[in-house]
Design a protein around this nucleic acid. Structure first.
Length: 255
DNA sequence: CTCCATGTTTAGAA
DNA sequence: CTTCTAAACATGGA
């Protein structure tokens, strides 16, 4: 569950549920949590949530934060005191009212850490601007001078934060740009179109709570597999390897 | 058994 | 320095 729309959907879920709850304790195992570097957090209250790219921050009344990254398969589920942990639970945040937040993650690439300052964390990780609301001006600035392939750029969290393999393909499909095109041969009009496609795809996905079944019929996402056809023109989709991942695109609609 | 999977980091090659 | 690839991490599903 882990690109920007999924993380934002989880953040909103937390806002509706654990806001103002008081932590009783955190349990779990490495590498999901790092018990050595987890300070005692009992009696800390959750005061706010926020997100930058694929990182979710849970602020505490002490001024510090928990930071969560969901890797490939991470998710959160709030359960009551009587429920048993869901499958693949790797860490649990317990609250004073008996409820628990289960961090599930079959592949164990996800992480839950404590940090003293979330703004410093974003700077230290050198994350690019968040993709959800990126402006045309900012996008033109960060792309200036880059000779990267456009898909590689979109996936680089240091350039722009939040886009992963699935939504990168959708953004390029909606913008009509092939994943292997180099940024330097896209003119400013094309780049502006691309910036608009980023915001359109991500906001639409967030509006639909990252539920693939609710995505528009002309989206590529349900057709990202060999043998599928383009939802717009019916041509078979193509597949190329970019940045170590498969990129799916329509050779007719994308140039 | 083989291939593939919504991610990040690191080592190394041009 | 920039761009890009492959491998590693760990696990499960087809």
């Amino acid at each position: 569950m882990p690109e920007l729309p999924e993380v934002e959907t989880i953040r909103r879920y937390l806002d509706r549920t654990v806001f103002n709850r008081t932590i009783a304790g955190i349990s779990g195992f490495a590498p999901t949590i790092d018990p050595e570097h987890l300070p005692p957090l009992s009696d800390r209250t959750i005061t706010a949530t926020s997100r930058h790219g694929k990182y979710l921050f849970v602020d505490l009344d002490s001024g510090s934060s928990l930071v969560l990254h969901f890797g490939m398969t991470g998710d959160l589920l709030l359960i009551t005191g009587y429920d048993s942990d869901p499958p693949y639970t790797r860490a649990v945040v317990s609250f004073s009212d008996g409820s628990r937040l289960a961090f599930t993650d079959s592949r164990r690439f996800g992480r839950l850490r404590w940090i003293p300052d979330r703004k410093a964390f974003i700077v230290e990780r050198r994350l690019g601007p968040d993709a959800l609301t990126i402006s045309r001006e900012t996008f033109l600035t960060i792309t200036a001078g880059s000779h990267q392939r456009v898909k590689m750029f979109l996936l680089d969290q240091h350039r722009i934060a939040g886009i992963g393999n699935i939504y990168a393909d959708e953004i390029l499909f909606q913008a009509g740009i092939r994943p292997l095109r180099s940024l330097h041969d896209l003119d400013p009009i094309r780049l502006s179109l691309l910036a608009a496609a980023i915001v359109y795809v991500l906001t639409t996905a967030v509006d639909r709570a990252a539920d693939f079944d609710r995505y528009p019929a002309n989206w590529l996402i349900p057709h990202r597999s060999p043998g599928e056809r383009c939802p717009c023109c019916g041509e078979p989709v193509s597949r190329v390897m970019v940045a170590g991942r498969y990129a799916y695109f329509c050779p007719s609609c994308q140039k």
